[in-house]
Design a protein around this nucleic acid. Structure first.
Lengths: 150, 150
DNA sequence: AAGGAGAAGTTCGCGGCACGAACCAAAGTA
DNA sequence: TACTTTGGTTCGTGCCGCGAACTTCTCCTT
């Protein structure tokens, strides 16, 4: 409604801009963005596959593969909750926790670089608005609007 | 400097949020995001592989593959400029132009949905700030800071 | 208790994506 | 005429994610 014809494009540019810096930072920790997001979601608490799939917007095979690869690197591990033996709990290894914390700190420190050329007031404003857009989803990536439950 | 510890995370969420909606819109036009971005870059003017690689942040093999797949779908075509016969110009087919224009219109129309829950004033503010962050790069994705020239 | 419906994950096969290394051909240069 | 540089391609590899099919377990109904 209130947006000009170029706003959509601007949003894409913004997303790409953020993503590229994010890729750099992840690569510095030898992580892909998918693995990084998984790690950040489980670094402070174990979670089930379904929950992770929902949070990451992935279907079941995608989750399985991602956990496979991340587990193979020793960052994460599968466990079985006793109350439901078909389910699967993903938790962090000590190494994963260490790397995840370091990554999170680095993201907090270096990702905001992309707004460096704005005035401090504008930076604060942008930060606040970005928080409103993402709906205050603090931990992990925002939930998708389309639950990919299959 | 002015950002709290969660700002980096908020930016990641914002990027993911935008990207997911973008993926949806692209899929509605039967495009991947990579192909969509390529199409948008060449839909109004032909460009060389190097230039595209620079704009998209891709190395040479990545560009070759992307153009291969997009060409195979008949959306884009390779041409040879007469002044340099080893180079290669990527231009749009009629079909590609049509789809590219439709996609662009759809992105302009539907991507701003993600800020719908903000007040009109905040939406305008966010739009303006987002434009400032992306540095007014109007056409195509923003240039990366690290030229992946190899 | 039996038996079927549904949920949680896995596996398989596929395709898109993107990299490094090696390569080829054309252009420029000594 | 050689040598170097530049623009792209090919090859092999790995990550990513989907749909379809399958197994196992839980739960609900009868």
């Amino acid at each position: 409604m209130t947006e000009g014809p170029g706003f959509g494009n601007t949003l894409v540019c913004l997303s790409v801009l953020i993503h590229r810096r994010y890729v750099q930072i992840c690569a510095d920790h030898d992580l892909t963005t998918a693995q990084a997001q998984l790690l950040c979601l489980v670094k402070d608490q174990p979670r089930g596959m379904s929950e992770l799939g929902h949070l990451l917007g992935l279907a079941k095979p995608g989750m399985s593969g991602l956990v496979d690869r991340t587990e193979r690197r020793g960052l994460v591990q599968r466990g079985t909750p006793e109350h439901d033996r078909r389910a699967c709990t993903i938790s962090c290894t000590a190494l994963g926790k260490e790397i995840g914390d370091a990554l999170y700190a680095d993201v907090s420190a270096r990702l905001p670089d992309i707004v460096d050329h704005l005035s401090p007031a504008d930076q604060r404003l942008f930060q606040e608005l970005a928080g409103m857009v993402t709906g205050g989803t603090v931990s992990g990536p925002c939930r998708g609007d389309d639950p990919p439950e299959q």
